[in-house]
Design a protein around this nucleic acid. Structure first.
Lengths: 136, 136
DNA sequence: CAAATAGTTTAGAATAGTTTTAAATTGCTA
DNA sequence: TAGCAATTTAAAACTATTCTAAACTATTTG
C-alpha cells in the first residue's frame, strides 16, 4: 500500500511532474503486493477500471516509456505483437505460457547462476534474460 | 555449398512445393557457412540483390513462417520493432548489441547448463532462451 | 499428355501496435 | 499571479505484419 504522496515524491525525484494521469498510472502499477506483467493495452484498460478516470493512450505510452527509462519498469523480451512490461525490476527471469500468452516470474535461484564465458571487445553486458517457453 | 537440387528435395520432403521463389529464398538463407540472423525486411532485400529476382513481400512472410513451422528457422525473442530469425536452429543463445541492433550467437557452452528448478503443473518446457544485452 | 485440382504467388487493402503532431491544458517558478 | 515549459490529448501518421482474392503454377489424374 503506497500512498499518493509517495508517488508524487517518486515522480518529483525523477524530474517527472506529478500530474493526475501519472499518479493514476502509479496507483495501478505500483500499488500492489505482487509483481505485475502487462501490455500497454492492459494498463490502458485497467486505469479506466481502477481509477474511474480515463487517460489517453498516448499518455500511457509516454508514461510507461518514461518509467522504463527511469528504471521503474522492465521490458520483457518476448516476440509477441504487443510489448510486455514488468513492475519487478530486480534481476529475474520468466516463464511464458505460449498458449495463454501469460508471463510467470522465475526467481534467479530457480534458474541458477548464469555465467557468460564469451565476451565481445568494447562491449559490456547490460542484462541477462532467460525466457522459458511453456507448452501443454 | 548446398545445391539447388538439395533444396528442392528438402522442400518436397516438407510437403512444400519447390517453387522458384522458395528455392531462391533457400539459396539466400541456407547457402552459407555461418549462421544468419535476419529480419523479414533484410531477407526481402537480399533476395533481390543475390538472386536478381524479386519475390513479393507476402511470399517472404509466408515462406519464413512455413520454414519456421518446419523447424528450419528459429525465432529470436527480442523486443524490437521487427522480428528476428536465425538459420541456426540448434540449441543456443544470443548476444544482442542494443546500439547496433545486431545479434551474435552464443554457444550453449558459453552460457553453461541452465536447470530450471521451478515447474508449472500441466505445462512442460518448450524452450529456454538466454538473451544477453550488450552496451558500450 | 491434357485437363483438373490444389497449392502458391502477388499487389494491394486491411489491421494493429506504436509514434508523432500540434493545439490545449496544467504544473511550477519567479 | 504571470509566464514559461512540461504534459496531455485526439487524431493523423507510420510500420510491421496479415489478409484477400485473383492470377498463376506444380502436381495429380484420367
Amino acid at each position: 500500500m503506497t500512498s499518493k504522496q509517495e508517488f508524487i515524491e517518486k515522480l518529483r525525484n525523477s524530474r517527472l511532474r506529478p500530474t493526475k494521469q501519472r499518479i493514476n498510472i502509479c496507483e495501478v502499477l505500483f500499488n500492489r503486493d505482487k509483481t505485475f506483467h502487462f501490455t500497454i493495452n492492459d494498463l490502458f484498460n485497467l486505469i479506466k477500471d481502477k481509477t474511474g478516470e480515463k487517460v489517453s493512450l498516448a499518455t500511457v505510452y509516454n508514461t510507461v516509456h518514461a518509467f522504463h527509462k527511469k528504471g521503474y519498469l522492465k521490458e520483457i523480451p518476448i516476440n509477441s505483437n504487443q510489448t510486455y512490461f514488468d513492475t519487478n525490476v530486480t534481476d529475474h527471469h520468466h516463464f511464458f505460457d505460449v498458449k495463454e500468452e501469460k508471463l510467470i516470474d522465475l526467481k534467479n535461484e530457480d534458474v541458477g547462476p548464469i555465467e557468460i564465458q564469451k565476451s565481445i571487445p568494447g562491449k559490456k553486458i547490460k542484462s541477462v534474460e532467460v525466457l522459458v517457453k511453456l507448452e501443454d
